[in-house]
Every structure is written in C-alpha cells, then in structure tokens.
C-alpha cells in the first residue's frame, strides 16, 4: 500500500494535468489579483473553488477511467492486492493535490497580493472538505460512467464550464442575472464558493449550503459506487 502510494505519487508528478490544476488557478489569481483591493474576500475563494473543481472534475475521473481502460485495475485484481487499494490511494493523492493547490494559492495570495486570509481555520477546513467531497463525488461518477479516459476527460471539461459559470467563477455573482445567481448558489461548485466566501468575509457559512454540499457528496458517491465497474 505504501509502495503503491509512492509510485502513484511519482506518476502524479509526471502528469501534466496535475501541473495544470496547480497553475491555472494560480494564473487566474495572479492576473486578477494584481488589481486587488487590500482585504479582498472574493477572488481567493474563487481561485480555491477553481483549483478543487479542476482536480475533482478533470484530473480524478480522467486518471481513474484511464486506469480502467488500460486494464490496470483488472491486472491488480489478479494479484494478492485488491484493486480497491488503488482507488483509495488515488483519492488520497488527489486530495493531497487539492490541498497543495489551495495551500499554494493562499500562500501566494496572502504574501504577495495582500489578500485577506480568514482566521477561523476550522470553518475553512469544514467548507474545504465538504466542497472537495462533493467535487470528488462528481469526479467518481464521471469515472464510473465514462467508457474510457478520453471520454471522462471530455465530460469533465464539459461539466466544468457550466458549473463554473453558475458558481460565479467566470464573473462575479453580482453581475449575473438574479435567477442564475440564486440557482447557481445551490450547484456543488456554487455552494462551495459561497461557503468559502462566507468564511472569508468573517462569518460562518450558511448551514444550508454546507448541508447541500454534504448531500451532493453523499448522493453522487452512492450513484458512483452503484455504477462503478472494475473493467
């Protein structure tokens, strides 16, 4: 298990997609952050949501669907190791990647851009974990349903853009039509961004939004488990 994790970590660092998930949100942060007002509470939550969304919707399903397509999961089931170990290792590593991406964003934003960093770490962690769980659940569902890695990649991208738009990641929420902004708040990515933003603004996230995230994570994970095939 340890060796599997080490090898998969090495493979992850060799994967260009992993670099993209780190660099794209960073790029957005730096480009828009240069004109940031001190103490801004909007941009950094947006960048964090983008980072987690990319890992969950794009990298995770692509990796898993490719592993199934290439028969890697199947080959594992012919060894004394269970292929479920691979699933666990992948989920953990992608979680680590999401944490690293967010850590990087917060460091850059906090030190170079003078963005506001929230003081209530526990609330940040809760919002982050629930949001990541919801994103990863969607990623797992894509991996379960997509016939191969390329399709998974396509579905991930296809889902990402409308979700990012509704979540207010393409443009600030107050410039969106009211109805879209309201609906968007209850999409997985939208609820995630809003929860983070609430924490950033010094308050607590709306419990309803946290419950929405938890519900997405739970229901979609169950669907993913139901449809997942090893081969």
């Amino acid at each position: 298990m340890t060796k599997l994790a080490i090898v998969e970590l090495k493979l992850l660092t060799r994967e260009p997609g992993a670099m993209f998930s780190l660099l794209i949100p960073l790029f957005i942060l730096v480009v828009f952050g240069s004109s940031l007002e001190p103490g801004d509470t909007v941009l950094l939550p947006m960048a964090l949501a983008i980072a987690v969304g990319l890992v969950g919707l794009y990298l995770l399903p692509t990796t898993l669907a490719t592993y199934r397509e290439r028969g890697i999961l199947r080959r594992l089931s012919a060894t004394p190791v269970r292929p479920a170990n691979m699933l666990v290792v992948q989920l953990l590593l992608q979680l680590v990647l999401a944490v690293v991406a967010c850590g990087l964003l917060m460091t850059v934003a906090g030190t170079m851009l003078g963005a506001h960093l929230p003081s209530r770490g526990l609330l940040v962690a809760v919002a982050f974990l629930l949001g990541t769980a919801a994103m990863f659940a969607i990623g797992l569902l894509i991996a379960a349903l997509a016939p191969n890695g390329r399709t998974a990649n396509g579905w991930g991208v296809l889902l990402y853009f409308p979700m990012a738009f509704l979540a207010g990641l393409m443009q600030p929420k107050d410039q969106m039509p009211v109805i879209l902004a309201t609906v968007g708040e209850y999409t997985p990515l939208g609820a995630f961004r809003q929860s983070l933003q609430d924490v950033w603004a010094g308050g607590a996230p709306d419990p309803l939004l946290l419950m929405v995230l938890a519900a997405y994570a739970l229901v979609i994970s169950i669907a993913a488990a139901r449809f997942f095939r090893w081969e």
């Binding site: 090898v7 493979l11 060799r14 994967e15 290439r70 028969g71 890697i72 080959r75 012919a78």
Partner: peptide, 20 residues
C-alpha cells in the same frame, strides 16, 4: 498472470513497475 489487453501507466518506469 499476464492478461490480454492490459497496459501500464505510460509514465511508470520499468523498475518501478517491477518493484511495485
């Protein structure tokens, strides 16, 4: 077991696969 139609990850090195 050597299975038909199975591959390894593109980026894994030969020694890493054997070691794993």
């Amino acid at each position: 077991v050597q299975l038909q139609h199975t591959q390894l990850p593109e980026n894994i090195k030969v020694w890493e696969a054997l070691d794993l």
